[in-house]
């Protein structure tokens, strides 16, 4: 019960203080929106639906990684983060509370290209439950990557630089807009080391019916990434934040 009160209040505070702030809302909406528009205008003949999985993946990736890395480094530099480390809540609860806000933010970001696409085309009858679950898993792994960046960064600008360093290459490495089969051979192994590749593949399968890997394998890999990243984050937090 006590852990639950702490969890809920950390989540509520983050949503109110960070995620609902106008600059962040606009970042969450404008970036996916402009990217979506750009893609649609550039390739007018292409089926909008073909772009949708990549756009969803991208929106989730950008929303989650940037928010968590920035808010945590911000709280660390203002020292308010110490309060969480000094509170009698387990590291698990704290990490979960921190990433839940980001995951919710990421899922809302995913809605932007979906709503947008619905203006251009009829959305097919697809398994929305599975899509939502995939989006959640993508948001979870991305949030954990953002957390991993936050643990390594000391300054807010460092966190921003780090996260851009990771996520821009991921746009191209994870098959979001360029199929992995079209990447140079030496880059392909890198693609399969990134969780987003698997998430995007499931979304592709659900929305366009064109997937390269089997769905159970992708779900398995995403779950595996979630667990490994979670443990890695905990290990790093323990090592770096408790000096």
């Amino acid at each position: 019960m006590k852990s639950w009160i702490a969890f809920w209040n950390i989540l509520k505070k983050d949503v109110r203080n960070y995620y609902l702030k106008p600059p962040n809302i606009s970042w969450g909406i404008i970036f996916p929106l402009s990217w979506t528009l750009m893609q649609i205008i550039r390739t007018p003949d292409e089926n909008v639906l073909g772009l949708l999985p990549g756009l969803i993946s991208m929106s989730v990736l950008f929303g989650t990684t940037s928010m968590l890395a920035v808010t945590i480094t911000f709280e660390r530099s203002s020292r308010s983060f110490e309060r969480l480390l000094l509170a009698p809540i387990s590291l698990n609860t704290m990490v979960l509370a921190k990433i839940t806000g980001t995951i919710i933010f990421g899922v809302f970001n995913a809605l932007v290209p979906i709503i947008f696409a619905s203006f251009f085309t009829d959305l097919p009858a697809l398994n929305w439950g599975a899509a939502l679950f995939t989006i959640l898993l993508v948001a979870l792994t991305s949030a954990l990557m953002g957390l991993l960046i936050a643990v390594s960064a000391k300054q807010v600008f460092e966190a921003q630089t780090f996260s851009n360093f990771f996520r821009f290459p991921m746009l191209f490495l994870c098959g979001l807009f360029v199929p992995i089969s079209r990447l140079p051979v030496f880059l392909r192994p890198v693609s399969y080391c990134l969780p987003l590749t698997y998430g995007n593949d499931i979304l592709n399968g659900l929305i366009t019916g064109i997937n390269t890997l089997s769905a159970p394998l992708c779900f398995g890999m995403l779950s595996l990434f979630s667990v490994v990243l979670f443990l890695l984050c905990k290990y790093n937090i323990n090592r770096k934040w408790i000096g």
């Binding site: 019960m1 009160i5 702490a6 209040n9 950390i10 309060r83 009698p88």
Partner: peptide, 10 residues
């Protein structure tokens, strides 16, 4: 209030 919530206070 937030600080107290971290300690599980209703």
């Amino acid at each position: 209030c937030f600080c107290a919530a971290l300690y599980g206070m209703p």
